[in-house]
Simulated assay, not measured.
Amino acid sequence: MTNDAEAAETPEEAGEAKRPGLVYFLGYGIMAPIARFVFRPTITGRENIPKTGRVILASNHLSFIDSLVIPLTAPRRVQFLAKSTYFTGTGLKGWISRTFFTSIGAVGVERGAGQAAQDALDAGRRILESDSAFAIYPEGTRSLDGRLYKGRTGVAWLALTTGAVVVPVGLIGTQEIQPVGTKGIRIRKVTVKFGTPIDVSTHGSAESGKARRLATDEIMAAIHELSGQELAGVYNESPPAGTLHKIADKVFPRERR
């Protein structure tokens, strides 16, 4: 490799978001119709998702399968964050993992606190600034008891920083597809509700802690209306479990509550 090649910046280092390519579109084209045929989800409000521009899909979180359900039922390409090790494996297993997560719109980020956490948040910002749709879970990690927990303000920071509209998402029944503590997938009926877009800019700037808190509370109230869950009234402090959502607490660090 030449010195020039070694010095070249990656798109991420240059401040650009990595956009899904052929693998995503082939994977989506195959997986989406199969998933809809097998699980026959009830989907409402798809028309609420803008066809173009910056949009955050902010959802409740009940199961690992949520990160498949949202991209496969949304009417446009959706990206989300996953830990980088899913993309760096070797051999057949590494290829399968990399191909699968790429095909469902995942973007790899490093796990960790401090700078790694900020880098993950910035990765979400770059995705939005490329006029893409970005899915996140404001609760930080999935609910193990089915209640809806208080939202962390990373979602508001992203919306206020990028000017993205927020579409609240209510998932119902996904925990029955893969119950807590199990690895297998069961065929169960699920409901996906996409709510009315929210413009959080009325709350103030991203630098204001009060604005972030008020915006997050508005988003969580909309999610609650869609999902009908019991409110926990506290943050979800459960240790991350599963796969994609293990980095969620790092993406939404405590200081951004």
Rank of each mutant, 00 (worst) to 15 (best):
M220C: 03
A58Y: 01
T141I: 04
A17W: 04
V167R: 14
R36W: 10
Y24L: 08
L158C: 00
V166L: 14
D66L: 00
E9Y: 11
P75D: 04
K250H: 15
K18G: 07
P253V: 11
F37E: 00
W157I: 05
G151P: 00
R142Y: 08
L244P: 07
S103L: 00
W95V: 09
G94V: 04
D145S: 04
R125L: 08
R36A: 09
T196G: 03
L144D: 13
G228M: 01
K18F: 04
R76H: 04
A221R: 12
L226M: 03
S84I: 10
G108S: 04
T191P: 10
R126N: 04
R46P: 08
F252D: 02
F25Y: 15
F64Y: 15
G242A: 04
F134R: 01
E12H: 05
I219Y: 05
F194M: 03
S67L: 10
G114L: 08
E207S: 14
G233C: 02
G27A: 10
R126Y: 05
S208D: 13
Q115F: 00
D4V: 12
T73E: 09
L26W: 09
I65E: 04
Q79I: 01
R77D: 13
I56N: 02
R98I: 02
E6S: 12
R142D: 06
E230V: 13
P11W: 01
L171E: 06
G146P: 05
S132N: 14
A135S: 09
A32L: 00
R186E: 15
T44G: 05
G21S: 12
G89R: 03
R256T: 09
T161N: 11
T52W: 05
P50S: 13
K189H: 12
R188H: 14
H224Q: 15
F64I: 14
A116C: 02
T196M: 08
Y149N: 00
T2H: 09
R19N: 11
V190E: 03
F101Y: 12
G173E: 02
V78Q: 12
A8Y: 01
M31A: 15
G163P: 00
R19A: 12
H245W: 11
H61E: 01
T161D: 15
G105H: 02
G163E: 04
G15F: 03
A74G: 08
K150E: 08
W95T: 13
Y28D: 05
D249I: 11
T44F: 06
F252R: 02
T216S: 11
A8T: 13
V251H: 00
M31S: 11
L158M: 02
G146E: 06
L214H: 10
A5N: 13
Q229E: 14
I198G: 00
R46E: 11
T182H: 12
V251W: 03
A106P: 03
R54E: 05
A222S: 13
Q178G: 01
A32M: 03
G108E: 03
A32G: 02
E230K: 15
T102H: 09
V166Q: 14
L121W: 09
L148H: 06
Q229M: 13
I136G: 03
V190P: 06
